[in-house]
């Protein structure tokens, strides 16, 4: 779905940190983004304590079975447009855990479950990396809110096709 980002969102983005069972590496890089060296606060990025106040959810981790209901509730509590930045290999695809027994495995699968529960995600940007670098997180955030243009595009090819 294409959603135009409201202009106000581009100015001062409030983010909610949603750890869905990650190993902490992406999480400390998120904090690093807010610390003086990267200093994302110069763009108005601010970490907030409640999803109700957030413009963007920073989602890290492969979504474990135990966190799933809580993650669904937290995302439901966000106001629309619901923007999600899926950070790190785990959030993108489940990463090294993708077929483990207690893991849902990546944001695309979570998105399906969210849709079944009536929670619409308006836009998502994936930031790969294990862990994602702080620069990549800032870049992904800028792409998400429409400050920068995406430089990659999606192309699906079937096996055997040239």
């Amino acid at each position: 779905m294409r959603v135009r980002t409201p202009r106000a969102l581009k100015r001062s983005i409030w983010v909610f940190h949603l750890n869905t069972g990650s190993c902490n590496a992406c999480d400390i890089e998120i904090l690093d983004v807010l610390a003086p060296f990267m200093d994302a606060e110069r763009f108005g990025v601010k970490l907030v304590a409640s999803p109700r106040h957030a413009d963007v959810a920073l989602l890290t981790g492969p979504i474990t079975r135990e966190t799933l209901p809580k993650v669904v509730n937290a995302l439901r509590a966000m106001p629309r447009p619901r923007l999600v930045l899926a950070i790190g290999a785990c959030a993108v695809s489940g990463g090294i855990w993708h077929d483990s027994y207690s893991v849902i495995g990546g944001f695309p699968r979570l998105k399906k479950i969210l849709e079944e529960n009536g929670v619409v995600i308006d836009r998502v940007v994936y930031v790969p990396g294990c862990p994602a670098r702080p620069e990549a997180i800032i870049y992904g955030l800028a792409v998400l809110v429409g400050l920068l243009k995406k430089k990659v595009r999606k192309e699906v090819k079937e096996a055997g096709e040239r």
Binding site: E66, T67, S100, Y101, V103
Partner: peptide, 15 residues
């Protein structure tokens, strides 16, 4: 134990 990812089992797996 929200972050239980089944690591010990994975290490025994053929992957």
């Amino acid at each position: 134990f929200h972050v239980h990812r089944g690591i010990e089992k994975l290490a025994e797996s053929p992957r």
